[in-house]
Every structure is written in C-alpha cells, then in structure tokens.
C-alpha cells in the first residue's frame, strides 16, 4: 500500500471515503464525521469485508466501525494515535499521511465527541452502541 497513491483516490476533495476491493473501487462517499462510515456499515457491510478503506479523517470511533466491518486495511489523511493503536491491536493494517496525538472537535476546545465517547473502550463491539448514542445525542442538539 503506497500512501502517496491512495491520496489520489479522494480526487482532490470530491470524496472523503473510498473503499477498494482487489484494486477496484466499490464505494465512494462524501461527508463529514462518522456519518459516511456508519452509513456504509449499516447499508452495505459486505463492502467493508476484506477491503482497503481510505478515509480523510479516522479517529477511534471510525476505526471501530471499520474493524467491525472486517476491513483489512485502513488509510487516512489524518489518523489519531488512538485509532492507529486500536486498528493494530485488532489486526487491521493502517497507514496515514499525518498522525495526530488527539482528534479535536471543530472548535479546537477539546476532543472530538466521538473520540471522547469511545476513548476508554477496548472492544470494537462495545464502541458501536456508544457511537450511535453519541450521534443521537448530537443530532438532538444536546451537549
């Protein structure tokens, strides 16, 4: 896996999530947050199995989704250290352009809410309900 080649898959920002299997692109999406990953996992989880997943930003929450989906490899433009450790601990190869110590929220005042929510969790299957609950809470406008 050559990271410099994988960045081209995002087509200059046209996509934020690209999934490849056997060298062929099977899924492309554009979106912010965990939305694209969670949508793919809910709608077409079979696409993730054994796939190379390229995402622009991968935190521990998104990493948990890809682990549960059975991805074989994850590449990210920006990946948090927690995500990289989580992927490696669960046998998923990973690479990134930039590794960040922490994934911050959009205001830069603290951790991303999803990253914060799954920070202490050790199993990917424990992360999914927490991710869904956090998503519901954020969509409802509650802090």
């Amino acid at each position: 896996m050559k990271p410099e080649n994988l960045s081209a898959l995002f087509e200059n920002g046209a996509y934020t999530l690209v999934v490849q299997k056997d060298g062929a692109t099977v899924h492309k999406d554009f979106g912010r947050g965990v939305g694209p990953a969670l949508r793919l996992y809910d709608a077409q989880p079979e696409l993730l199995k054994g796939a190379l997943v390229c995402d622009t930003i991968v935190g521990k929450a998104t990493a948990a989704i890809y682990i549960l989906g059975g991805a074989s490899c994850v590449y990210a433009e920006i990946m948090s250290a927690a995500a990289a450790d989580f992927l490696n601990a669960n046998g998923v190869d990973c690479a990134c352009k930039t590794k960040t110590e922490k994934l911050l929220n959009r205001q830069g005042t603290g951790l991303c809410p999803f990253e914060q929510a799954v920070l202490e969790l050790e199993k990917p299957e424990d992360c999914l309900p927490v991710i869904r609950a956090t998503l519901a809470r954020l969509m409802a406008g509650k802090k």
Binding site: G33, N105, Q107, P113, L135, M139, G141
Partner: peptide
Amino acid sequence: AGAQFDAPEAFYGFLLG
C-alpha cells in the same frame, strides 16, 4: 455556523431543527 459545533452531526441536527 458549522464551526460553532463540536461535530458535524451536531451541526446537522441544528440545521434540521
């Protein structure tokens, strides 16, 4: 107002409301 929210999902929830 996207930059005022911690996460994109919070922004989308605000926009929907």
